[in-house]
C-alpha cells in the first residue's frame, strides 16, 4: 500500500497516538528472547486499531519492531483477520449485520438501501471520508434482527424504509458530535 503522510494521523513517531500505543506495549513487558511474546500480538493490534482507526504500514512496522518480529509476520496476521483494516474507515461507520437471523429478516435489503443512499458499496468509504459501510457477522442481538450498528449504537428491527431517517441525523449533526472511532 502507499503511505501518504498528509492523510495519515501519524506524522511523526513522537505523535501522541504512538505514545499511547507504546505505553500499552510497555505494560506487556515483552522480552525479545521470549518465544511466547507473540501471544499478545492480536491484543496489541486491536489496541492500535482503536488508537489509529486503522493499521497503516508505519504502525505495522512499529509493532513489528517492538515485538522483534518481521513486518511480514505482522502483516500476515492483519490480513488473516476480518477485524483488522489497513485502510481508514469513515468517521461514521455503518455496520449491517448479515448473520442468518438478520439475513432471513431482510438485512440484505437494508444493506442495499444504505449503499444506495450513501452511494458507496459495502467495504467502501464516501469521498469526504465521512461514512463507510461494512457488513458483519452476527452481533448476537438476534432478537432485534435486522440489526445495524452505527459507531457503537445499535439500531434494531431496521426496515429499508428507516434508512434515510437513521442517516438524516448524521447528515445534520455534521462533525460536531462524531468522534473518530475504531471498528465496532
Amino acid at each position: 500500500m502507499t503511505y501518504t503522510p498528509n492523510h495519515s494521523p501519524c506524522v511523526e513517531q513522537n505523535h501522541p497516538q504512538f505514545k499511547e500505543l507504546d505505553q500499552y506495549i510497555e505494560s506487556l513487558h515483552l522480552s525479545p528472547d521470549d518465544p511466547r511474546r507473540k501471544d499478545t500480538l492480536i491484543m496489541t493490534l486491536h489496541r492500535a486499531q482503536e488508537i489509529f482507526g486503522y493499521l497503516p504500514e508505519i504502525v505495522q512496522l512499529h509493532i513489528a519492531k517492538k515485538y522483534s518480529i518481521s513486518h511480514a509476520e505482522v502483516s500476515g496476521v492483519i490480513s488473516f483477520y476480518n477485524f483488522f483494516t489497513t485502510t481508514p474507515k469513515g468517521k461514521i461507520q455503518v455496520n449491517v449485520c448479515l448473520g442468518t437471523a438478520c439475513y432471513v429478516n431482510g438485512a440484505n435489503k437494508v444493506l442495499q438501501e444504505f449503499e444506495q443512499v450513501l452511494g458507496i458499496k459495502s467495504g467502501q468509504v464516501t469521498a469526504d471520508g465521512k461514512f463507510s459501510i461494512e457488513s458483519l457477522r452476527c452481533v448476537g442481538a438476534c432478537g432485534l434482527a435486522p440489526v445495524v450498528t452505527i459507531n457503537h449504537k445499535v439500531y434494531g428491527k431496521v426496515k429499508p424504509g428507516d434508512v434515510r431517517e437513521i442517516l438524516e441525523k448524521f447528515f445534520i449533526e455534521e462533525d460536531k458530535d462524531v468522534k473518530e472511532v475504531s471498528h465496532a
Partner: peptide, 22 residues
Amino acid sequence: RLGAGAFVCGEETALIHSLQGL
C-alpha cells in the same frame, strides 16, 4: 484474549494458533 473476526478460529487447533499470535 480477543479474537479478530475469523470463523475458523472456533476450531480448536486454529484457536490455539490464534492465541499464539499467528
